Simulated assay, not measured.
Amino acid sequence: MSNTMRILGAPNLYLQGPGAIERIADIVANLGKCALLVADPTVERMLTPQLTKLLTSVGVAFASAPLVGEVTPANVARLAGDHRADVVIAAGGGKGIDAGKAVSRAMSARLVTLPTAASNDGPTSRIFIFYDDDHKLLSAERVPRNPDAVIVDTQILAGAPRHLLVSGIGDALVKRYEAAQCVGAGRPNMFGGRATLAAVSLANVCEQVLREHAVDALAVAGSGKPDESFEKVIEACILLAGLGFEGSGLSIAHAMTRGLSALPATAEALHGRQVAYALLVQFVLENRSAAFMADQFAFYAAVGLPTSLAELGLPKPSADDLRTISSLTHKAPHTRNFERPLSEDELTEAMLQLEQMRQHSAG
């Protein structure tokens, strides 16, 4: 890679803890005078009363806009055309955060993210995904800069369903290993530069925190009562993973979402579950030892992550299914961020080898 510039991007402010949402009024008031909440209908109904009270108390005009359907260019254009705001509050899980980012870009508005579930590491990054109406991935897009503020209310997150945190753990777990491949291959990060020591360190620490605290954090997920392990895992899933992936780069685990989202059976799986499965395929391509794979399988079982296509919703993948996944993965840009060039056949063979490993370990 000819570019020797090291680049790290990050949100202007990150705030995490029980009751953090109470700080949103002053944060938004410093950014603009008119705020718009973008979220799915459930989250919009949940947050609108509280945000109305908080924001109007500091003189900020407030409105909300529910996203119905997928994060498509047409839906985003409609939301942006129906409203006016100089600050967008993007709230929810992956869909709500992505929709809010897209609307903020369309409006040229400032951006505050307010995750209500730690299902992915999108809240800190510039990146969002456009899908079609059938949830097939269309493109990875960017807002002009990282969010102005990320507000992580762990009391809200601790009330979210457990399976959403499992997805977030999966999305965060892959970052160390994708960073290592991207940096090792001399490929650019998400800012088009080299990774800083800080970004790689964050990706590494992220995995360490998950290994130590994920099981304990999952024990309180859904209770609405965050403890210290939960706080650490939330920081890993959102802040460490977000800065780690954007500053270091992605590889096979994320490239495979192009293929996995194209099959109806696996497209329904949450993003974090898709990339967690795909990381195991990446490990096969890296020729990891049997002992290493056994350790990964044990951790996946402890937190409830998928280790096979069957656990992603595709119990009997056909040859055509595997070819579809491999072909679209091979076309994905992140596939080039690997220690060697890969063929479609190698990707298919790695998936078959993983299936055989799982059958052998189960037997």
Rank of each mutant, 00 (worst) to 15 (best):
N12G: 11
N12D: 15
N12T: 14
N12P: 13
N12V: 07
N12M: 12
L13C: 14
L13D: 14
Y14I: 15
Y14W: 13
L15P: 00
L15G: 06
L15I: 09
L15C: 08
Q16W: 04
Q16D: 13
Q16I: 05
Q16N: 13
G17L: 08
G17K: 14
G17M: 07
G17I: 10
P18D: 07
P18N: 00
G19L: 11
G19K: 11
G19N: 00
G19P: 12
A20K: 03
A20N: 08
I21V: 11
E22K: 15
E22F: 06
R23P: 07
I24R: 01
I24T: 10
I24M: 03
I24L: 02
A25E: 11
D26V: 09
D26Y: 09
I27A: 01
I27F: 13
V28H: 08
V28I: 12
A29V: 11
A29P: 08
A29L: 02
A29I: 01
A29Q: 14
N30R: 15
N30T: 14
L31H: 04
L31R: 08
L31S: 04
G32M: 03
G32R: 02
G32W: 02
K33H: 11
K33V: 14
C34M: 12
C34E: 09
C34D: 03
L36T: 09
L36Q: 00
L37T: 06
L37Y: 12
L37F: 06
L37D: 00
L37H: 06
V38P: 00
V38M: 13
A39N: 14
A39V: 12
D40Q: 09
D40M: 05
D40K: 04
D40C: 13
D40N: 14
P41H: 04
P41C: 01
P41S: 05
V43P: 04
V43R: 03
V43A: 06
E44M: 07
R45C: 10
R45K: 15
R45V: 09
R45G: 12
M46N: 12
M46V: 14
M46W: 10
L47A: 08
L47S: 02
T48R: 01
T48K: 05
P49V: 05
P49G: 08
P49W: 14
L51A: 09
T52Q: 01
T52H: 09
K53I: 02
K53T: 09
L54D: 02
L54P: 06
L55N: 05
T56F: 06
S57L: 00
S57T: 01
S57Q: 11
V58D: 08
G59I: 02
G59R: 05
G59S: 04
G59N: 07
